[in-house]
């Protein structure tokens, strides 16, 4: 039995069934492996790997400059906000910034449908998880790293963004949004 010592010579050749099964399994393994790089080449959506190292304070500076530059203004000249978070409307093709901090996504991005942007994602405190709804797309925001996601919104509307990495007691309240205009 399986818990008794094996026969003195246990390394007998396998039966045909087992050999066939191994071949099938290995073919399966090789096929799935083969498709890993292939999907990356023929698929349209891959997790990006473009990353830059920078200090949280440097990232915060960039975000603030970005907000100053592209903030949407009210008729009165004040920066337009929604529940206290400024709304930013950068031009298509530009570098845009999204900062996680306990417990908001900052700022609110207003994008144009069909334009491509380079979204810089990072955090200035703990780890956060960017989760875009209702598409359900998820990317990590890690401190000290600027993660660049190249995105092209294909649909107009308001897209809530949640945090899906536990980031402290306010984690479930960390909801922001991205607005896409026609």
């Amino acid at each position: 039995m399986a818990f008794n010592l094996p026969e003195r010579v246990w390394w007998k050749p396998m039966h045909t069934e087992e050999k066939v099964w191994i071949v099938l399994c290995v073919i399966f393994g090789l096929t799935t492996f083969f498709f890993m790089p292939v999907w990356h080449m023929i698929g349209h959506q891959n997790p990006p790997s473009e990353t830059y190292k920078l200090l949280p304070s440097q990232f915060a500076d960039k975000v603030n400059t970005f907000v100053d530059q592209y903030a949407v203004k009210e008729a009165s000249g004040e920066v337009k906000t929604d529940k206290g978070t400024p709304i930013v409307h950068p031009p298509g093709g530009s570098d845009i910034y999204l900062m996680g901090k306990q417990w908001i996504w900052y700022p609110i991005l207003e994008l144009e449908k069909g334009k491509t942007y380079r979204l810089h994602l990072s955090t200035i405190d703990v780890e956060h998880g960017l989760s875009i709804y209702p598409l359900n797309m998820n990317f990590m925001a890690l401190p000290d790293y600027d993660y660049v996601l190249t995105i092209t919104p294909g649909e107009a509307g308001e897209f809530p963004i949640l945090c899906n990495e536990f980031c402290g007691i306010g984690h479930h309240k960390m909801v922001g949004k991205i607005i896409v205009k026609e």
């Binding site: 890993m36 999907w39 990356h40 698929g43 959506q45 891959n46 997790p47 998880g129 989760s131 359900n136 797309m137 998820n138 990317f139 990590m140 899906n164 990495e165």
Partner: peptide
């Protein structure tokens, strides 16, 4: 898998 992780990660 690399691509599917985009929709499964942390869900």
């Amino acid at each position: 898998t690399e691509q599917i992780a985009i929709v499964t990660h942390n869900t």
